[in-house]
Write a protein that binds this DNA or RNA. Structure first.
Lengths: 344, 344
DNA sequence: CTGAAAGCGCTTACAG
DNA sequence: CTGAAAGCGCTTACAG
């Protein structure tokens, strides 16, 4: 390579990387040589010599769920455009995460980390921070780190208030984390909190029997709904923590012969691509944009942090959400009249 | 590190990698030291010195579609268990692919490549092979390379034969590649071929007007169905190349006020997680298993190919598929009587 | 079984 | 503007 261009390897390096001064003509010569040889500098040699890896780790708990694949999609888009490679770590179980953060294969391997709604223990978080490289959290906040997310509490309140305004009083909550899970998603806790806040703000008491957790995804939502259906008191409306659970609930209801929204209203969160097909009322968020923003933020930090002192306040981007009214919510069939509070 | 264990860096390397002979006691000492320092060898130094990267590139055209996220999920599972890192390249557009294969950032960067149903030109394929590292193709065959896939032609025939046996004659095809695309998925072509074969085998002539291509995913399926609905002659049944298209078709039909399967039957391919919710008849495939198998195959090749001569015949794994009867297919409402062929 | 030494393929001060 | 040289942090024959 250096031979073909008739220069030293140092000049090859400077020409191709754009760092340092090289005569325009020399640079051209080197680039031509690179092209004819289809030469690409060895990433490993570059990484070792320069300390920069041009690689970002993306850590996700799920890959097959709408939110996560959408975020990753947004992330790869901007990272690839910026010439960064993406190292994907799919840590589905608590065991996976423990093993991963104990070994910490990220050390000296990547320039930055994008953590997507990972349910992390303190140990995990410490191991991450010990890396001492920029980290951006997506979908949940991590103390002291820049993050991109939505207002989870407000999202849940919006959904539940919608049901309340329709006249519902017995409103159940369907959560996505199994009862026996040894951890939870931050967003799950916040959405549950928003649900309870909305209820108490109108003097409806949240009751444990109306908060069910059936597990992840469609099957989890279906299981949770089935449990609600077998309970003593049927709710007139259900708020599911995210659309896949809501869709599972719809499935369960259909199999039980109950009509939506006639018998029970259902509302979710996400605006999953299937929501419109199932005519599901939901609070929409733009997951792909979250990925785009987070990656952009990380890239900025990477370009800024070159030896400068760490910035003061970590950026916290909060994206808007929007209640999308569709066909799975309606006023309850029969008003519960013994609840008092008549119109003046 | 070497200092703490009181040995040379060579011994550290041998102890941690398991290569070469080390006294059991020495190895223990080194491992303890590594643990207390939470030392991990620099992947870049290892890569440069040894030539092995412990990294696999996974190249995908989509991330948010069920098939691809499921395959990637299966892939990461076995690769992570084997201690390999996954470099994810998301090449959604033809432009992305051209840029990628022209630069070929994979050179000297990974030990192997997993290519998922990538629509590759000859140039791309050549660039890939020039890498001279093991490649496994998933979801489509590539000449001379080991692959994991299903029998695409047979899958389409199964779906269409099901419709034919129900008595349908006017059976349309909904494809997922836009009309103006500059390339196609191999599986799309094969499924279209299977569709035509099934029709001609019972003397139904495939007609261009009944083959529509609306673009990817739900919206593509909806657009294609809308086009069929505005056509001169309504089909009595539709075969969609994959479930997301079929789901889009269902959506379109519902908005048009047509009942499924009463007015029109719909069948897809995949057994997407939403298929059961929408009660969609489909030909199911196990995408996650394809990912698992492909990754396993690649790992085997990696472990075998250590200097040995290239193996004779590349492995070709073909996974079974299964017609799953649900509620979106039924006999046509009124038999077309002028088609002849009465029972004896 | 272990260490000294060369080398992997770059980058980066340092001279000039 | 360019090159010689050191060095990045490992691995791997080669001795012993």
């Amino acid at each position: 390579m250096a031979a073909l261009a008739g220069v030293s390897s140092a000049t090859v390096s400077r020409s191709l990387s754009g760092q340092g001064n090289v005569a325009a003509r020399t640079r051209e010569r080197v680039r031509d040589a690179a092209r004819t040889l289809s030469y690409v500098p060895s990433p490993y040699a570059v990484g070792l010599a320069s300390g920069r890896t041009r690689t970002i780790a993306v850590v996700v708990p799920f890959l097959t769920r709408w939110y996560f694949s959408s975020v990753v999609s947004g992330v790869t888009e901007v990272l690839e455009a910026a010439g960064y490679d993406v190292l994907l770590y799919h840590l589905g179980s608590a065991a996976d995460r423990d093993r991963f953060f104990a070994r910490m294969p990220l050390a000296r391997r990547v320039d930055g980390v994008l953590s997507l709604s990972m349910p992390l223990t303190d140990d995990h978080t410490l191991a991450l921070r010990a890396l001492d490289i920029p980290i951006v959290s997506v979908g949940s906040r991590m103390a002291g780190l820049p993050s991109v997310c939505i207002d989870e509490v407000a999202v849940a309140q919006t959904a539940v208030n919608h049901l309340i305004h329709l006249g519902h009083e017995r409103i159940a909550f369907i959560g996505g984390v199994p009862d026996d899970a040894d951890f939870g998603f931050v967003s799950s806790e916040l959405r549950l909190r928003g649900y309870r806040l909305a209820l108490t703000s109108v003097d409806h008491k949240p009751r444990a029997a109306q908060e069910v957790f059936g597990g992840y995804g469609i099957d989890g939502g279906a299981a949770a709904m089935a449990r609600l259906l077998s309970g003593a008191e049927l709710p007139t409306a259900v708020f599911a923590e995210y659309d896949e659970l809501a869709i599972g609930a719809l499935w369960s209801l259909r199999r039980a012969g109950l009509a939506v929204p006639h018998d029970i209203s259902v509302v979710g969160v996400d605006d999953h691509e299937m929501a419109k097909v199932l005519d599901l009322t939901t609070v929409g968020q733009d997951a792909a944009s979250q990925g785009v923003l987070a990656a952009t933020l990380l890239l900025q930090t990477l370009n800024t942090n070159q030896g400068e002192p760490p910035e003061e306040a970590p950026a916290d981007v909060m994206l808007p959400t929007e209640l999308i009214l569709r066909g799975t919510t309606a006023p309850p069939r029969r008003r519960i009249t013994d609840a008092g509070g008549a119109a003046p």
